[in-house]
Amino acid sequence: MNRTLKYFDGDRTLWVIVFALGLFSFLPVYSASSNIAFRFGDGHVMSMLIKHAVYMGLGLGLMYLVHRVQYKYFAPLSLLILPLIAILLAVTLVSGHEVANASRWIKIPIVNVTFQPSALASIVLLTYLARYMAKYRESIENFGQTIMRGLLPIAVVCGLILPANFSTAAIVFALSMIVLFVGGFPLKYMMRIFGLGIAGLGLFVLLVMAFPNMSNRIDTAKTRIESFISGDEEANYQVEHAKMAIARGNVFGTGPGKSAQKNFLSQSESDFIYAIVNEEFGLIGGLFILMAYVWLTLRVIRISMKAQDKFGRLLAFGVGLGVAFQAFINMGVAVNLLPTTGQPLPFISSGGSSLWMTCIALGMVQSVARGLNASPEIVNDTEMFNESIPQDAYA
Rank of each mutant, 00 (worst) to 15 (best):
R3Q: 13
K6H: 09
Y7A: 13
D9E: 12
W15E: 08
V18Y: 04
S25D: 08
S25E: 05
V29K: 06
R39W: 09
F40L: 13
L49F: 14
V54A: 13
Y55P: 00
V66H: 02
Q70M: 03
L84T: 13
I85R: 02
I87R: 07
G96D: 03
L120Q: 05
L125F: 13
Y128D: 10
M133D: 00
R137N: 12
T146Y: 06
I147T: 08
P153V: 01
C158A: 12
T168Y: 03
T168Q: 14
A169P: 11
A170Y: 04
P186N: 06
L196Q: 06
F211Q: 15
R217W: 06
R217H: 15
R224L: 11
R224F: 12
E226T: 14
S227T: 15
Y237H: 14
K243D: 02
I273Q: 12
A275P: 02
I276C: 03
E280K: 08
I284D: 04
G286D: 06
L290K: 04
Y293P: 03
V300Y: 01
S304A: 15
Q308D: 13
L315C: 07
V319S: 06
V319H: 04
L338K: 04
T341L: 11
P344R: 07
F347I: 01
V365C: 08
Q366L: 15
V379T: 11
F385K: 02
S388I: 08
